[in-house]
Design a protein around this nucleic acid. Sequence first.
DNA 1: GACACTCATAACTATCTGGTTATGAGAAAA
DNA 2: TTTTCTCATAACCAGATAGTTATGAGTGTC
Lengths: 108, 108
Amino acid sequence: MTDVSPDLLFKALADPSRRALFERLCMDGEQTVGALTAGAGISQPAVSKHLGLLKQAGLVLDRHEGRQTHYSAQQRALAPLVDWTGRMNRFWEARFDDLEDLLKRMDQ
Amino acid sequence: MTDVSPDLLFKALADPSRRALFERLCMDGEQTVGALTAGAGISQPAVSKHLGLLKQAGLVLDRHEGRQTHYSAQQRALAPLVDWTGRMNRFWEARFDDLEDLLKRMDQ
DNA sequence: GACACTCATAACTATCTGGTTATGAGAAAA
DNA sequence: TTTTCTCATAACCAGATAGTTATGAGTGTC
């Protein structure tokens, strides 16, 4: 529930297989490991490991039901990423404003 | 100028040293390799390599002036990231709306 | 021209990482 | 209970990667 560092998020999403799994969960909703393995081009243990990392990064939740595990995307998880990009853009705009101010002053 | 794949962006930003360099460029504006090396806890060649990757990912620009190279953050570079996170959230919300619809129908 | 400075590249190394196969644990089915 | 199914973990391997030192290329300075 508590926010995860951007570092974990970036690392988790840097791998294409992992990002693809997360995208599928976002698009199609909760799915079992078996369903996710079908369609991912990698073995079931590889999928499980990736899901483990995604879970550790707070990007997915797991739910055990009988002998299968259902994974789902955790919506709020991307918030730190949005915050980070927003912050970077804001820095940029701040410097841009400074430049504008400078130009205005030079104009007078 | 043309948009870069989210893959390159995520990979470039997944490394802490690289992300720190980019953040400094966003916060403080254009800087030389020397200035960036001071403060990064790593050697100058390491910094140069990271800057090379950031440039390849479209995150920074370089400008040669005499014997020094000035790097700056490229503002629009984060756009694909913003798009991607937005898309993921939109998927999520769409499924949420479906659920709402379902609940509404069940309610009738 | 000789020297100093700034950065990029080369070459190398240790560690990380993403994949594999083999296997074990737990739950349903027979 | 035995078997089958689903997933996670263990053990291992090959390639990627982030760092290092050494050096070269290009530019200003003396």
